[in-house]
Design a protein around this nucleic acid. Structure first.
Lengths: 341, 341
DNA sequence: CGCGTTCGATGAACCGGGTAAGCACGTGAC
DNA sequence: GTCACGTGCTTACCCGGTTCATCGAACGCG
């Protein structure tokens, strides 16, 4: 049950190991006839190059890494990651590259994983997600000289190339949509304040409100969970100056918000409009279907994976801007009630 | 920026490579003093054993594989996989083992991936999920002599060890719950018919109905998507003999069913009771919260990962039965309407 | 015919660790 | 004084694939 090696092939073909290597790698140095014979034997005995041996001689690891740093129980409901992963896979599969995945609890643990992977030669590079302001991972990557691509805004990625989309523009589109419907009091239920893109959206939200002359509004931050989203929504809807529209940072908090509205006997969209940031099948399955910001997450993942590989190959890489998320209006947004509360 | 090797350590410590190897692996052959000195140097220059070199000498790959074979766009909304993965990680992280993940489109592609991984020595073993009846992957694993653990019922796993739970018992619990509430016409919206566990649930469903003297009911199969779940629900609720309760095979179809009921002006749970198979934050975030079958998916993943590692170490392994899923009654189940439709 | 060139193939070194065998030295017993 | 035995370390080779220097044979050409 031992795996066949090139030595086995060489013996059967009556040539040297070197000749087999040349033949199987399509390099000159053997006659076409010998090459064909060797390839036939390799095929027959089911030979595969041993990655370890290949890696030892200086080739890449043939794998890139992704460390996900959110608590496990929040991960499941976030379609984002699975979509991202499937996009990365698409790109990697084409080059028969592998993805190493690890779920950790915090930044220190994540950095330890990167150090280990890089030190052990397990990965050729990594993709970083969920960047914080002054993210400690960035300088570590820079110091290690480890190929790394950030999915997130370049303002937080230091010298690392970033794959990003214009979140401020997307936010503007949302607020303009709501303003056009007649809303004047718009609130926002945000993600964790520590995330760089939360801060960007926060700023864009405030600016957009000001630009359109809407009222300033509270922006409670959550940990992206349904419970937190429900709590934030309940508080917003109980306040004296109740908003007529709420923009959520992800689909699960938006869903929770929808439920809370129903609990409080508010009709969506008649009494309250709801917008979810990431679109997903969830948004379409509930009633009313949620107006959401759609973006092609798998495409971003694929792009990032491609960049990492090119970076690992020694190319000089600069970031890529993806198209901004686009608003997909559905049943959860409508003009505010006549008698504003 | 080159990674340090034991040769570097040996040079700095003024000893041979062999001594360094002994010292760092805690094997006898060096004095405690030398060992301490060598370990200090290794620590200082940030040495890590190169996996490739280690692998070459016959050690394991230090990684196990998981191939997921569902279309990417359905994956995101299935909390199941992320929970499973995080459970696997828990077990692997303790042994600083890695997880290789690949998403593929079909069984042939999956088998090709396993062949490649095994042939290249990339993984020590794999975990198989979503078994079909007469699954083609099982004989391949057996033939390759590749350590593999199945998450699913042993009836489909051939000679491979399985991590499974008693789905029939869980189904009985659901039906008994509904029967106790007074339901007589219970339907079921199932997953793909090809999956082994769908067949098991189908059979258990029919048997449980018969055992409790309930009416026979239709069991439409879906691909686990919200759209399919909505379609199936719409048909069930439009039929002459409308069911007063529906059991769904996953949370996303259950959610879709809830929305359809609302569309058709049926109150949940007053007019229709709903049970979801897998519990997830989704079930708790909607109104009414969904009665669901809870099981500890991360624990199953961890158990499977542990078995694979022990199998890879040469141990003789037999399967493990997890506790059956338990019913968690919430607001979506209640007695049927007095005037049964 | 002799010489240089090209082709096809070989042998050996190399990558970074692991490990069996061997060797020098010190200790203790007789 | 010698022999046996540990201890502590070195030497050398292994793993499987890549690569470079080399080499013999065939070939072309003057």
């Amino acid at each position: 049950m031992k795996r066949p090696t090139i030595a086995d092939i060489a013996r059967r073909a009556g040539v040297s190991k070197g000749a087999v290597s040349y033949a199987l790698n399509g390099r000159p140095g053997v006659s076409e006839e010998t090459r064909a014979r060797i390839q036939a034997i390799a095929q027959e005995i089911g030979w595969r190059p041993n990655v370890a041996a290949r890696l030892l001689t200086g080739a890449g690891a043939g794998a890139i890494g992704l460390v996900v740093c959110r608590p496990a129980r929040f991960l499941g409901v976030e379609p984002f990651f699975m979509e991202l992963i499937s996009g990365i896979e698409d790109e990697l599969a084409a080059r028969s590259c592998a993805l190493m995945l690890q779920v950790v609890a915090g930044h220190e643990a994540e950095i330890a994983v990167h150090r280990r992977w890089w030190g052990e030669g397990r990965v050729d590079g990594v993709i970083l997600v969920d960047l914080h302001a002054d993210d400690p991972r960035v300088p570590v990557m820079e110091r290690l000289g480890m190929p790394a691509v950030v999915i997130g805004h370049p303002s937080a990625s230091g010298s690392l190339p970033a794959v990003w989309s214009d979140e401020a523009a997307a936010m503007r589109e949302v607020i303009e949509h709501l303003a056009a419907l007649g809303h004047r009091r718009v609130a926002r239920v945000a993600g964790p304040a520590a995330l760089a893109h939360t801060a960007i959206r926060d700023a864009a939200f405030t600016e957009s409100l000001a630009a359109l002359g809407l009222e300033e509004a509270a922006v409670p931050h959550t940990d992206y969970t349904g419970e937190a989203g429900a709590r934030a929504t309940r508080r917003l809807l109980s306040s004296r100056a109740r908003p007529t529209a709420i923009v959520y940072d992800n689909d699960i908090t938006a869903l929770a918000g929808l439920s809370v509205a129903r609990e409080m006997r508010l009709e969506v969209p008649a009494d309250l409009s709801i917008v979810a940031w990431d679109d997903s099948p969830l948004c379409q399955v509930v009633r009313p279907p949620l107006t959401a910001l759609t973006r092609d997450i798998p495409a971003s993942g694929a792009r990032a994976a491609g960049l990492v590989l090119r970076m690992a190959a020694g190319e000089e890489i600069s970031g890529v801007e993806d198209p901004a998320a686009r608003l997909r209006p559905r049943g959860s947004t409508a003009p505010p009630p006549r008698t504003a509360p």
